[in-house]
Design a binder for these strands. Structure first.
Lengths: 149, 149
DNA sequence: CGTGAAAGCATGATTTT
DNA sequence: AAAATCATGCTTTCACG
């Protein structure tokens, strides 16, 4: 993981469909050299894969919320994950410090669907209660990117 | 935006580097037809682009937090966005309902860097106070995906 | 939308540093 | 060990039916 790898990762984050030839021009490497490094980055897990960035609204996925989940007992994170996994509406889920145990990022077709999902969440044995915060607008979204500096 | 487009989007979300020929096999379309549809999906904004999914830890980007920001005055969302944009550590930012005005998803190299960013955030004129929740683990992360059903 | 052709790209084997 | 070159087979891309 040297500075050339970082350059390659940056190129692929910016455009996952860039050709190895184009990436090579950016980092001053031949096409096969870029491919070998990308293959290695995939093998070692630095690169987890390549994906399309979809506009959720364009797919009718307009309503989002951040839900704090307070668990009844001390449930193990892996057990929590197993319970949340079936919820297709969960865009992300985190265990956190603070009063709540888990924060879940929900994405649903509309407020009605959001409510349905919340009811299903509250129906889980491990869930004591939830508090929801509806997202009004997305100001920034760089989650697919690499982060600062 | 018909069912074929949805199939194409699913393929690209699963693997943004899939060839048009392979996608075509999935959706029963010729290679150029797939390309035409992808070009159109990009032009109309349904597809915003293609990106690499990077393991943040592998890049030393290990510490994350969700920060509630309480603004001093009624600041317009676009103005808030302008203030937050320079923070490279912001992975995502949302305006929300509830007590706080904005929720920011921060990603930093370590707790020390996280603190520095929080201090800079609190230094903004518009920010009255913040409350932070440190992320202990990521249970699920489907942010790049398309969502339920 | 499909077909076919031309240009460009991916990728493995081989050679070079 | 890692990169460049080269040769092969696919991919992309576009004009046309």
């Amino acid at each position: 993981m040297d500075s050339i790898d970082k350059g390659i990762v940056s190129c692929l984050v910016a455009n996952a469909r860039a050709s190895y030839a184009d990436i090579g021009k950016s980092v001053n490497l031949s096409t096969p050299a870029v491919k070998r490094r990308v293959d290695r980055l995939l093998r070692t897990g630095v690169l987890r894969g390549f994906t399309a960035v979809v506009d959720p609204e364009a797919l009718g996925w307009a309503t989002e919320a951040l839900v704090d989940i307070f668990c009844r007992n001390n449930v193990a994170p892996e057990r929590i994950r197993e319970h949340l996994e079936p919820f297709a509406e969960i865009a992300a889920a985190y265990t956190v410090t603070g009063a709540a145990n888990v924060v879940v990022h929900l994405r649903a077709r509309d407020i009605g669907k959001l409510e349905t999902v919340l009811e299903r969440l509250r129906g889980l044995d491990m869930v004591e209660r939830t508090t929801s915060t509806v997202i009004l607008s997305t100001l920034l979204d760089r989650r697919a990117g690499v982060g600062p500096r």
